[in-house]
Design a protein around this nucleic acid. Structure first.
Lengths: 187, 187
DNA sequence: GTCTATAGATCGATAGAC
DNA sequence: GTCTATCGATCTATAGAC
């Protein structure tokens, strides 16, 4: 067998969509390494164990999310309308139900009661998600009202992702996004 | 060893809280049978395999939920206020975040992308959940508006359960319940 | 209680870049 | 040659199942 050249970044990129749609517990190290076209042992060269892999996956997703979300929100060149549109595109990319929904929510429900290993990262992710929405809502609402609305929107969106997955029907997440848009633009 | 007399109902009752909080994938047949104080082989006498067990668990939860929810909703003796109060108590019992949240949502996210085995039951559960809320909302809203609100409330509640579990803070589910109450009573 | 499959994990060997 | 990224093989524990 010829050796295959890879990198940790490449491996993470290939592995994230699988973990998102199959879930953490249902993805074995063998399966993941096979999907990357490398030996399992090589996987352990990159990640000392499965927990370590998942931790890196969640951190990668979180930092990608943060970078893009706050780039939009803090832009001076975009109108509020444009910010909302771009945010919707970002959320669709990260949360699309047909691709497994929100890996943070999935991992939370899969692991949080057994092992709080990933709790901090997940908490931090949702803190930023809520904060981002709050900042957009503060254009038309008071700080306190904006926070409460942001929390409600995150709940609505995550619940919408759940129902959309259960029924294979995008209307639930779409309705949640519409309500979010309405609240931000104060329509 | 003395023989232990059990029944399938007893086993289900003991097993449900474990599956709810640990999740389906993280609960082994050995662990579950041990928790019931019976031999693993006896478990396979009741349930032909793990899938069969989970199916019965979900059906049991669903029928318990349905029976109690619609008993409240269709009662002639209760005021709308009382119905809302009783429904909140039922939801708290079934969905309490400290006890593992909503077993239907948990199982959905754990399994739905691998294996649609439990999909029908979960779909049917949420259909009834939405329908129940819709009937309460129809007192003060049109049929279509009531359906849309009911879907929104279910999303809000399920998202609230998620955030409450992630942050160990009941405020998210409590806020969702308050919003639901407000919408039903038309305050 | 036992069987079989598969999970996570580790080890020693080596191809290939320098 | 050395170094290190990669491989093949294997260990141990535990899962579901009967």
């Amino acid at each position: 067998m010829p050796k295959v050249k890879t990198s940790k970044e490449e491996v993470l990129k290939k592995v994230i969509p699988i973990l998102r749609s199959r879930g953490v517990q249902n993805s074995s190290m063998s399966e993941l390494s096979k999907a990357c076209g490398i030996q399992k042992s090589h996987f352990y060269y990159y990640f000392s164990n499965k927990e370590d892999l998942i931790r890196e996956v969640l951190a990668t997703v979180h930092s990608y999310f943060n970078y893009n979300l706050f780039k939009i929100i803090e832009s001076n060149a975009l109108s509020l309308n444009e910010k909302v549109l771009k945010m919707k595109l970002l959320l669709d990319k990260l949360f699309r139900a047909s691709d497994g929904g929100c890996i943070m929510a999935n991992t939370a429900l899969e692991t949080i009661h057994l092992d709080p290993t990933y709790k901090k990262e997940i908490q931090s992710f949702f803190k930023d998600f809520i904060l981002g929405l709050q900042q957009l809502l503060e254009v038309h609402h008071s700080t306190e009202k904006a926070l409460l609305l942001a929390e409600q929107m995150v709940q609505d969106i995550e619940g919408g992702i759940l129902l959309t997955q259960i029924y294979d029907d995008p209307k639930y997440i779409n309705n949640a996004m519409k309500r979010t848009e309405t609240a931000i633009l104060n329509l």
